[in-house]
Structures are given as structure tokens and as C-alpha cells.
């Protein structure tokens, strides 16, 4: 007669919908990964396991170039974004409200609010005139554009870390004769380091994933992996794109797992 108790939190059909959502959410991604290992040319018929498409992607000079550019841009942009975001976080947290605080917040979070396509168009116009005026067409435009929209992603975890930090630790350091600089180097910085690493990783992933802004800002021959794939989508889909996607996917999952382990609150 062990009847289950009346479950207050149960709502009819919700569990079923939730399960369906998880299936629908993952089925396409799993299909994509599975077919990247397909031996045949077709993306519909399974013709046996092989690494052909990974191999052909690796042999493809365009893919190699795009990968190299993606990594250079993501590394530089996340480096810049994390540095300036760390400074801004130190400046804007753990103090009384000050004049212009809201302005700084709005500026930092602006890339999250403005639609990407609008920023992309704005950068296209702005950088086009600089390119014409200077004749310089390097990757630096992409790096700066990426750095800008990565700043809020780097800033948020760093700020969260700082705000969760016990102020008395720094007071204690000062009490133990540490100078301002020493307190920062020996106490503040080590304590905020997980936040900085988390912010840098998020910025890196965000930069690596960007399509729209890169598509508008890049000069000829400056494809990154995502814009290369977008270009490929105009033609018939080849499993090569699936292979590249799978590698990027794996990278994202690894970075995310690390991010969660870093920011997880200790019980």
C-alpha cells in the first residue's frame, strides 16, 4: 500500500515536455557529431566509421588558415579584454556609488544590449574609412572589435568574484604591515585569480564563436573558422563542416567544464 505522497511540485505533463526538450536539444548536435565520422560523401546515409573528413579538413589550406586566425584573434582579444576588464572591475567594485558609475556600467555592458548586426554595421562603416585612410588591412581590426564585445563577458565573472571577496582579508593584510601594492599582489590578486581565469575563458569562447561582427569587419582572405563555415553553407553541405563543428564543439565543452569547476562555489 506504499502509495507515494502527494507531490506538491508536480505539474501534469511537465516532465514529459522537459524530457522532449532535452532530446530535441541534443539530437541535432549528436547527429552532427556522428555524421562527422561518416565514411561516405553523403550527410544522410551512414557508410561506416572513418576519420576522412577530419583528415580532409586538416589538409585544407583554407581551414588551416582560418583556424590559425581564429586562435590568434581569440587569444589576443581575450587577453586585451581580460586585462582592461580586470582593471575596470577593481575600479568599480567594492566602493560606494560614485559619480559616473552608471555610465561606466552601461558602457561596459553595451555590447550585450546592442544587436550584433547593428554593431557589425557600425564597425563596417568606421573601419572601412580607416582602412581607406591608412591603407592598412591587418587582423588588428578584428582583434579590437572582438576585444570590445568580449569585455562584458570577462568583466562579469571578475566582478562577481571581487564582490564575493571578504574585505577583512585585505584589512588583515594591511594590519600585518603589507603595503597597498603588496596587499594587492599577495592577497587581492591571488583571490581574484579564479575570476580572471574564468573571465578570460569566457572571452576566448565568445571570440572564437563570433560570426556576425567578423563577417562584416574582415577584409578579403581574413576568414575565421565560423565565417569560413558560413561561407560553406551557401554550397552543398559537406561532412567537412561537420568535422570542424565537432572540434569546435569539443573545445567549447572542455572550456565550459573548466569554467564551471573554477567558479563553483565551495560548500
Amino acid at each position: 500500500m506504499a502509495n507515494p505522497s502527494f507531490e506538491v511540485a508536480r505539474l501534469p505533463g511537465f516532465r514529459f515536455i522537459a524530457m522532449a526538450v532535452f532530446v530535441v536539444l541534443y539530437l541535432p548536435i549528436i547527429t552532427l557529431v556522428v555524421y562527422s565520422f561518416n565514411a561516405g560523401q553523403s550527410v544522410a546515409l551512414w557508410e561506416g566509421f572513418s576519420l576522412t573528413w577530419y583528415h580532409s579538413a586538416w589538409q585544407n589550406e583554407a581551414v588551416k588558415g582560418a583556424t590559425f586566425r581564429s586562435l590568434i584573434i581569440a587569444a589576443s582579444a581575450s587577453g586585451i579584454a581580460t586585462t582592461v576588464a580586470t582593471m575596470a572591475a577593481l575600479g568599480t567594485t567594492r566602493r560606494k556609488a560614485f559619480k559616473g558609475q552608471t555610465f561606466i556600467y552601461v558602457m561596459i555592458n553595451q555590447p550585450l544590449m546592442v544587436p550584433e548586426i547593428v554593431t557589425a554595421v557600425a564597425l563596417l562603416i568606421f573601419f572601412a574609412s580607416i582602412k581607406v585612410a591608412t591603407g592598412y588591412n591587418g587582423l588588428i581590426y578584428l582583434i579590437i572589435a572582438h576585444a570590445a564585445f568580449c569585455i562584458p563577458f570577462a568583466y562579469l565573472p571578475i566582478r562577481a568574484r571581487l564582490e564575493g571577496m571578504d574585505l577583512t582579508l585585505e584589512t588583515a593584510a594591511a594590519d600585518l604591515y603589507a603595503s597597498h601594492w603588496l596587499t594587492f599582489r599577495r592577497v587581492t590578486l591571488p583571490l581574484m585569480l579564479p575570476g580572471i581565469i574564468a573571465g578570460a575563458m569566457l572571452a576566448f569562447v565568445i571570440s572564437l564563436d563570433d560570426v556576425v561582427i567578423t563577417e562584416f569587419v574582415k577584409s578579403g582572405g581574413q576568414d575565421t573558422l565560423p565565417t569560413y563555415m558560413l561561407g560553406q553553407m551557401r554550397r552543398a553541405v559537406t561532412p567537412e563542416v561537420n568535422a570542424i563543428s565537432s572540434v569546435l564543439l569539443a573545445l567549447t565543452v572542455v572550456m565550459l567544464t573548466a569554467f564551471f569547476l573554477l567558479t563553483r562555489k565551495k560548500d
Partner: peptide
């Protein structure tokens, strides 16, 4: 520094 980057590229 953050504001400069944002002002320039956002």
C-alpha cells in the same frame, strides 16, 4: 582602458 576600447570599437 576598457572605456577606450569600447568607445573605439563598440
Amino acid at each position: 582602458p576598457a572605456l577606450i576600447v569600447l568607445l573605439f570599437a563598440a
